[in-house]
Design a protein around this nucleic acid. Structure first.
Length: 135
DNA sequence: GCCAACGTTGGC
DNA sequence: GCCAACGTTGGC
């Protein structure tokens, strides 16, 4: 079981939208590095949903409900997607500011590669984010 | 195959 | 609104 972080622009698709929809296909990713990560996504994995733009904060946890599969709506077979459902909202959002302030996160892609929209989350980072959301 | 020009993302 | 950090495209 692996952990992921998924970025989304909330005015486009937010964690609330996922809660309302109850289930969604995570599509629209074109970046090759992000697609390489998506290919490793498995049913049962958990994902942090992170809002970009004005919010810049982790807001909720989602559960992956399918393995990665080729996007049936994409012409390019390299494009892969997966389905997920909402699991829980974080008690409090964890902001990018908080993440940048903590040295534990310094080497993480979220801080180092701002454009990357899908990335793995090491267990230590997963735990710390959950901790920060409860403080 | 290289690289300049351009486009995109996301933070500031 | 700007810019850094990429990725992509197209000419050579």
């Amino acid at each position: 079981m692996a952990y992921w972080l998924l970025k989304t622009e909330p005015s486009d698709f937010s964690f609330d939208d996922l809660v309302k929809a109850k289930r969604a296909v995570w599509d629209g990713v074109a970046n090759n590095t992000a697609l390489i990560h998506i290919r490793r996504v498995k049913k049962g994995d958990l994902a942090i949903i992170y809002h970009t733009g004005d919010e810049k904060a982790a807001v909720g946890i989602a559960e992956v409900v399918t393995d990665a599969y080729p996007d049936p709506r994409a012409a390019d077979s390299k494009v892969v997607v997966f389905d997920l459902k909402p699991k829980q909202r974080l008690a409090k959002p964890v902001t990018l500011k908080q993440i940048k302030a903590d040295p534990l996160f310094a080497e993480w892609e979220l801080v180092r590669i701002s454009r990357l929209s899908v990335m793995p989350v090491p267990t230590a980072i997963w735990k710390r984010i959950n901790q920060l959301s409860e403080d």
